[in-house]
């Protein structure tokens, strides 16, 4: 077991009240496995990823409960120096907007090799050589002449390649990719995902892909966790989930994807209603107000995850 997240709970405390961004989420990840976290904007998927590296912006945000066991150690119990030695080294993160996630006044080369300088004690000379190698591995053309370039001289796709190179530099055991391709052209999205998948497979790196793109998950993830309003509502191996989605929300997500094999005159079916306010959640199931299968019990008490088969869990009273 590489990573075991247990009862992770991250809240934001502001003047209006408590925003329950991540509420009692648990999952596990084996070496080399890829997991997808899926959900709408604001469902807590990014916060759950940031929580792993304790990058929640303070002082309002706080991890209030839970355990994050990584290589046998609880990351939440580490000192500041210890967590710093894991960030970028054992666990790397790739963010969604390459143009704002890269420092505009530092060269690409320096930014890519910085983790090596910090964690591996490499000098700049060796760092540049390794950096060129990394840039080549993410297929940046003419890599040796690009190490001196600045982010504004890069396109979005090139910037994201550099971000991936940066993430892979120390050969981490786990990569967290937070919507790595959302800001990019569709053609480049596929290319980058292929590069990432290839490199992580070569190095046996585990990966968590956060996305709202179900297509990406279907193709690249071994298993999936669907999140809604800060909670994990369905967890399954990817083929199981796509073959038989159980939660009404997951079903809704699947139904709202446009399909080429469908009659084009048939309308897409969006999920009715709006996601709930995380500071003011309903008493029962958070999805109840939008759910077509809602029963009386759903409004009264929140459902817990129940195992319906070996690799499939769902939080819905309809399966209780």
């Amino acid at each position: 077991m590489l990573l075991a997240v247990r009862n992770l709970t991250t809240y934001f405390f502001n003047g209006q009240g408590t925003v329950k961004a991540v509420d009692d989420v648990s999952y596990e990840l084996e070496e080399g496995q890829t997991m997808g976290i899926v959900g709408e904007s604001g469902c807590g998927k990014t916060v759950s990823a940031l929580s792993l590296l304790r990058l929640i912006p303070g002082p309002s945000g706080r991890i209030v409960r839970g355990e994050i066991l990584f290589e046998g150690r609880d990351l939440l119990k580490l000192s500041q120096d210890e967590i710093c030695s894991i960030r970028g080294n054992r666990i790397a993160m790739i963010f969604q907007e390459p143009m704002t996630s890269l420092n505009p006044v530092l060269t690409i080369g320096y930014q890519v090799m910085e983790p090596l300088l910090v964690h591996k004690g490499m000098n700049k000379k060796a760092g540049i050589l390794k950096c060129i190698e990394l840039l080549k591995s993410v297929q940046i053309p003419d890599a040796p002449s690009r190490v001196g370039a600045y982010p504004h001289q890069f396109s979005g796709g090139m910037g994201q390649r550099a971000m991936i190179a940066m993430g892979l530099s120390c050969n981490p055991r786990l990569i967290i990719a937070d919507e790595p391709t959302t800001a990019l052209d569709v053609t480049i999205q596929a290319e980058l995902l292929e590069i990432m998948k290839g490199l992580t497979r070569d190095h046996g790196t585990a990966m968590i892909i956060i996305t709202h793109n179900l297509g990406v998950v279907a193709r690249y993830a071994d298993k999936v966790m669907v999140m809604y309003a800060g909670k994990a509502i369905e967890k399954a191996l990817t083929p199981d989930l796509y073959r038989r989605p159980r939660h009404p929300y997951t079903k809704g997500l699947m139904a709202s994807i446009p399909r080429l094999d469908q009659d084009i005159r048939q309308k897409l079916r969006p999920i009715e209603g709006q996601p709930p306010d995380l500071a003011n959640l309903p008493k029962g199931c958070a999805f109840a107000p939008r759910c077509a299968f809602c029963v009386e019990r759903c409004r009264r008490e929140p459902p817990a995850l129940i195992k319906i088969s070996e690799n499939h869990e769902v939080a819905c009273w309809n399966y209780a």
Partner: peptide
């Protein structure tokens, strides 16, 4: 965002 990236690198 790039400050968050710097933190995520382990600086």
């Amino acid at each position: 965002d790039y400050i968050r990236t710097a933190h995520a690198k382990g600086l």
